[in-house]
Computed example of a mutant assay.
Amino acid sequence: MFATNPYEFRRATLDDLPLLKAWRSNPHVLEWWGSGEPYGEAELVDPRVARWIISINERPFAFLQDYTVHGWEDHHFVGLPKGSRGIDQYIGDSEMVGVGHGSTFIGMRMQALFNEGAPVIATDPHPDNERAIAVYKKLGFEPSGPPQETGWGLILPMLATR
């Protein structure tokens, strides 16, 4: 007998902005993502970035974005091989934090990106975000240099390869 996959990824839309705004106001998300507006129409249709709402058993609980690292001339991962992707995410629903969902849905998206041909997947957590760094290491990411200040804030560059 085969177990069914309870996770669903669907593209974020303008209809998701109230949900994203609510999630971004949660203290565990605010700590690492700040209090800015989640996205507007221009960001949601930007072809450089795929933004996803993740649900489990039809319950939305997380946000993930993956993007071309070559979409911005000044991006800190621009030197990676062609086709490399960056990822960022958070679990918005505080009841779902710390119970294994992050490593599962991030791993699923990583596998999809590798299957689509990405040679490297990059991520850039804040160096003090120990929970995120532990999850990334569990999924095969390794630090690729020391913490650095970027246009997106202080980051620890991390890479995973096929």
Rank of each mutant, 00 (worst) to 15 (best):
E130F: 05
L80M: 11
I56Q: 12
T13W: 01
A62Q: 14
R10S: 00
R51M: 07
R131F: 12
L154F: 11
R48E: 06
E149Q: 14
A160C: 05
G102A: 15
D46E: 00
A122N: 13
P157G: 11
P157A: 10
D74Y: 02
Y136W: 08
G107V: 03
L154A: 13
P18Y: 09
G98E: 15
I121R: 07
N129Q: 07
L156Q: 15
Y39R: 07
E43V: 06
V69T: 13
R59K: 14
G34E: 02
P119I: 12
H101Q: 11
A160H: 00
A118V: 01
P125N: 08
A50E: 02
I121G: 08
A112V: 09
P127H: 14
T4K: 03
F63I: 10
H126P: 09
A160N: 00
G71L: 12
D15W: 01
W52R: 05
P6I: 10
V49H: 00
E116Y: 01
E149F: 05
M96H: 14
V99N: 15
G100R: 14
T150G: 09
K21L: 05
A134P: 02
E37Q: 05
A160R: 05
G40W: 00
P81C: 08
I87K: 01
E116W: 01
S84D: 08
D66V: 08
F61T: 11
Y7Q: 10
R24Q: 04
N5H: 08
W72V: 04
I87T: 03
P38K: 04
V135K: 04
P125R: 07
E37F: 04
A118K: 01
R85I: 06
T161R: 14
Q111M: 12
T123Y: 04
P119A: 13
M110E: 11
G117N: 07
G40E: 03
G140I: 03
P47G: 05
T104V: 15
V49E: 00
E142T: 14
A22S: 01
W32N: 06
F77Y: 02
A42R: 09
T150W: 06
D74K: 00
P81S: 09
R51C: 08
G79E: 13
V97I: 12
L17A: 03
Y39N: 08
H28F: 07
M110Y: 06
M108H: 06
G100M: 14
A62T: 15
E37I: 04
Y7C: 06
A132E: 07
M158D: 04
H75S: 06
V45C: 03
G151A: 15
L30E: 03
D16T: 07
T68S: 12
H76F: 15
A134T: 11
Y90L: 15
G71I: 14
F63W: 13
A132F: 09
D15C: 04
L17H: 02
W33M: 06
P81D: 07
I155R: 11
A3S: 15
Y39F: 07
P38N: 04
M108Q: 13
H101M: 10
M110T: 10
Q89C: 14
W32F: 07
H101F: 11
A160F: 01
P27R: 00
L154T: 15
